[in-house]
Design a protein around this nucleic acid. Structure first.
Lengths: 213, 213
DNA sequence: TGTTGTGAAGAGGTTCACAGCG
DNA sequence: CGCTGTGAACCTCTTCACAACA
């Protein structure tokens, strides 16, 4: 199967979110145009995105909302539970640990780790903060799929390498550094400072910057 | 001047971060190759990115680190203070409000708003949570540049419209919805659920998904 | 008739390769 | 000689336009 663009996967997430909404509101069928309107894109783009994975629609009618929802869940790998550990019990780490939206979408936070002795042992929403030194022992036992990295930039690379050594293959990196890891490891970056700088650039140079989201 | 790609602006942020580091470590001169290595890209890409804005390097030598740092700050609009308000005093909102890294980079959080009476009036790191109803009065007076939206999805669109009506022109949106706003408003989205879903997709379909970050 | 699915065209971003210059 | 700056080639993603079909 063909390589799917990152941007396509991102849009599938958007479609899925809106589809779930539609289904709970009793919508039976939905057109590429409606999906496009809510997803901030074009109907041709929606059809192209979906066409990579099959034919889900009926010509003249649109897509059956419930079926398409299920298909997108499958495609995105959301038809299973993902075991997630959070590394770093700082501001963002604890906010994420307590955010119930993740569990709701199949991302089960099974542990939180930190290096700070003052934080280790404290309880966050039922989860006890563990010593980061235990991660090498825990990962092979508990087999988390994804690690969310919310440690200071200086430590991010070293901690990431430890996680990979312990068996983690997916990392959501909040540290503003580009991690260098083996090719088979999947990394996604979330960088709020960078987004603010993007806004700063756009607001500073409105003529030359696009308005696209 | 030509329209600059979003991806380019993002990379400039990465270069800047590494350059600042290098300068504090006494580095005088830096090559496109070194910038590429740390930015997870190629030297040609670095040179191309910079070339959109001018000629900053010396052939045979590389780029003067301090000068390039200053130039990038200018380009990104970081040679000034940006006034930021946070809308939504939930988990993420308060984590962001207390994160000092923003102020350090010129993003000054001047206020936090919420609709929940139990949260209004409480203090977060010196900032009193204000009633969202005051936003229409405050924005024209205090002239914030950027609003960080951390409200529930259902309310995001309505709140965003109120912010725009009050005069906000830049929004960092944490709600997992695509905001529909006038073209002159700049929006950036941060969507952690979407990033996790991207990881889920990549881990599920390793053959067909790239490893690119 | 209305909307999908899709080749083909177009636009935009990245990589190449080398001339230019310190 | 080494590294930048950049036009051209290349590639990938998006948009177009229309045949297919419920």
């Amino acid at each position: 199967m063909k390589r799917i663009a990152d941007s396509t996967v991102r849009r599938l997430s958007v479609y899925l979110r809106f589809l779930e909404d539609s289904v709970t509101h009793g919508v039976r069928t939905i057109s590429s145009q409606e999906l496009a309107r809510r997803g901030g894109t074009t109907s041709a783009q929606v059809r192209k995105d979906l066409s990579f994975f099959g034919s889900f629609g009926k010509r003249g009618l649109g897509y059956p909302a419930a079926e398409l929802t299920a298909s997108l869940r499958d495609i995105l790998g959301l038809d299973r539970e993902w075991r997630v550990i959070i590394i770093g019990a700082g501001k963002i780490g604890t906010a994420l640990a307590q955010y119930h939206g993740f569990r709701q979408r199949g991302f089960d936070i099974i542990a939180v780790y930190d290096a700070d002795a003052r934080k280790i042992g404290s309880k966050w929403d039922g989860l006890v903060v563990r010593d980061i030194r235990e991660v090498e022992r825990d990962v092979p036992q508990e087999l988390p799929d994804i690690a969310v990295l919310t440690v200071p930039s200086e430590e991010a690379q070293a901690v990431a390498e430890r996680l990979v050594g312990a068996g983690i293959e997916g990392i959501l990196n909040f540290a503003p550094v580009q991690l260098k890891l083996p090719a088979h490891i999947t990394v996604r970056n979330v960088n709020m400072a960078m987004e603010l700088e993007g806004l700063s650039y756009a607001l500073t140079n409105r003529e030359r910057s696009g308005e696209a989201q």
